[in-house]
Design a protein around this nucleic acid. Structure first.
Lengths: 392, 392
DNA sequence: AGCTGTTTGTAAGGACGGTTGCCTAACAAA
DNA sequence: TTTGTTAGGCAACCGTCCTTACAAACAGCT
């Protein structure tokens, strides 16, 4: 009959939406129960019902399916002297599955571990990279994964990998210059070879996940800065990693931190140095471990402290806009404690507070990681927990 | 029987999770259909089914309920010469409801409008603030809202308000010094008085929403900077506003942008000025409209351009870490075109590119808003569209 | 001991949402 | 006219959660 007017022009790409089925609701509720048991410890079914808002009937059903899968176990009666029938405690069984986690941040050796569901490391292995790149580097990684899988004593929930470079949500490495990987579907390849679920993410992102889950993060909004050969950052907002437009969020290492014309701290830091990226004064040229070691070499304690404080001030200047814009609750440093933990941290925090409004700065914390060396490994494990069980 | 070991200590506050019911799946799918019709224009049921992944049966059912509510209408047959039965086009009815939107960013007058579902302004009203604060300011706002509601010619979908200050997700104003509001449940009060759904958010956030929905945003990651009496920012990541730990995300106005010891641009900008917050050199002391007008007053064209370029460079320095950390695709400036649009924008973009790695800076855009004066009003309308229909 | 009230966990039945399978209507191409 | 394709509707089924009802286990009281 009536023909139709021209459709209005599409205004922008649609936000990724997906159909929702009742079974997704089920999965979400199942994850909520697991999340609760994971973080808050064993509970009775009735308590789970109250905490989730679901009915006891539904919780019973969910718990029954989790029991059938072996993910949770009944732990006996609640022994507190309240009125009424005592509940049966149900708890996550940390021994039910094991997780294989691998960290590729180190250029010399690939570090891996087997963890249980509580995040405890059960087994540790490393493999030398030996300068391998491209497909050969994938083989080294795959070999370590096989070795770790062989070392597990329980069914494997999945494999988590933290790698430098730009990595999309599907675990495809868009670019990782250190390994010579470009547009490589790493998760897919590993998954096919190992016949296991594999999750791959940027190493700073996995470090952020680990800190978020196990580092005692307090509020909402966490930035984790990994300081090693380079500088990277992972950001968790509202419980999720920030991806960025090109999956390159967290590229803080190459923000200019030292300006040709700044008088600020000129004496201790000298003129802006040339960076590997071809520009001058990048944060990496002052904050990376090699740069700092070079700067403090041969200095006495006072000189060393002054130099590190200068670096900390530059870091504070770079962090101030980020912390303000996102109203972060926590900034966490990962790297050598002896370089980052002292005057550097203190100066960075002081500078950060100086340069931000109190409503923001009074709540923000700046501290060393509480996970020690293997934060990235724990984070890679969280990647699997999150991907397979919905637990974060 | 067996008593139980101590539960593991809770490690952190749980991420906000909520139970999911099948009816939520229904609401989500309904929103997805509306979203599609909103952004991509009229479609047949079969096309909707293909686009959403749902079956034709389910789509028919959803469309039937939307037809019953008057939100969509059938627009006749598809007239293209393909094989098979031609489909019946179904389109969002922009006339079905109207939206009342109010912007409180201006200290002198409250601006309001009636919009249809396509975002077109149908009616415009303002009310003088007259220095009112506290409850009196609420009364002024309420009066304007009543006037606008009376001016509507269709059922009202809801009321959206953009206000300066820190505002939580429920529309409670935690603090808005300009209006003398502290811990005020504004959305709740307005909703009770008007007997309509009311959504309240920070004005920079609503501006960001408006730009995101109607400004032709390209990629993922948008920061909108509102420049007026002060400076504010709203950030949209992954299709959602960034809230921040204390709902204070976007507080960029009081980041130090001009340092006592910086030589950088000293000549055009002078020594760091005292800011209303009590500190020196905040971004607001160089980028706010009054500050800029004062700086360019009495200068010739060249001097004016140089001064604005200096301001742009300071802005670029502040933005660089944020753009890098979040890998933003777009930074949008809202405010007086004659101040922001020319040398300031150019210098800010150039500085931003100088200070960030190409992988980040090559994709980022920095431009004036395409929504003109009433971006915040459009954004307040999006608040309602999003809250009531799930359309963004 | 026996009763009462409270709390836990399960069972049965109903409501809702989505799917599959099958039907008819409408059209183009052979 | 026949064939193949597409749109849209109807019926039957499955999954998920809810409400209601009930048995079991306990504390506190008489």
């Amino acid at each position: 009959m009536t023909t139709v007017a021209d459709p209005p022009q599409p205004r922008r790409a649609l936000r990724s939406t997906a159909k929702v089925l009742p079974e997704h609701a089920r999965a979400s509720n199942r994850s909520m129960v697991l999340q609760l048991l994971f973080h808050a410890g064993p509970r009775s079914r009735a308590e789970l019902a109250r905490a989730t808002g679901l009915t006891r009937v539904t919780i019973s059903d969910l718990v029954a399916s989790l029991l059938a899968q072996g993910l949770v176990t009944e732990l006996g009666q609640q022994a507190d002297g309240k009125v009424g029938k005592p509940g049966t405690l149900v708890g996550l069984d940390a021994e039910a599955f094991q997780i294989v986690a691998v960290d590729l941040a180190d250029d010399e050796r690939v570090h891996g571990a087997v963890l249980d569901l509580s995040g405890a490391v059960r087994e540790r292995r490393t493999a030398p990279v030996g300068g391998c790149t491209g497909a050969a580097a994938v083989e080294v990684l795959l070999g370590l994964c096989r070795e770790l899988v062989a070392a597990t004593t329980r069914p494997v929930l999945g494999v988590g990998v933290g790698s430098p470079g730009v990595i999309d949500l599907s675990g495809r490495v868009l670019q990782a210059p250190n390994r010579g990987w470009y547009d490589l579907p790493l998760a897919e390849q590993l998954s096919a070879a190992l016949e296991l679920p594999v999750h791959v993410a940027n190493d700073a992102d996995t470090a952020a996940l680990g800190e978020f889950t196990w580092g005692g993060a307090s509020g909402n909004g966490l930035l984790v800065l990994t300081v090693g050969g380079g500088v990277g950052a992972g950001i968790v907002l509202d419980g999720a990693l920030v991806q960025g437009n090109e999956h390159a969020a967290g590229e803080l290492g190459h923000v200019t931190a030292l300006d040709e014309r700044d008088e600020h701290d000129r004496a201790p830091l000298g003129r802006p140095e040339l960076c590997a990226c071809g520009r001058r004064g990048c944060l990496e040229t002052v904050l990376s471990v090699p740069a700092m070691r070079r700067r403090v070499a041969g200095l006495d304690a006072a000189g060393r402290d002054a130099a590190l404080a200068s670096v900390g001030r530059r870091l504070g200047i770079v962090l101030a806009p980020v912390v303000s814009a996102l109203n972060l609750s926590e900034v966490v440093l990962c790297g050598p404690e002896e370089l980052l933990g002292g005057p550097l941290r203190d100066a960075a925090l002081a500078t950060l507070r100086e340069r931000t409004i109190p409503v923001v700065s009074s709540h923000v914390q700046l501290r060393m990681t509480s996970l020690g060396e293997h934060g990235a490994l724990s984070g890679a494990a969280v990647l699997v927990l999150s991907g397979q069980l919905g637990v974060t």
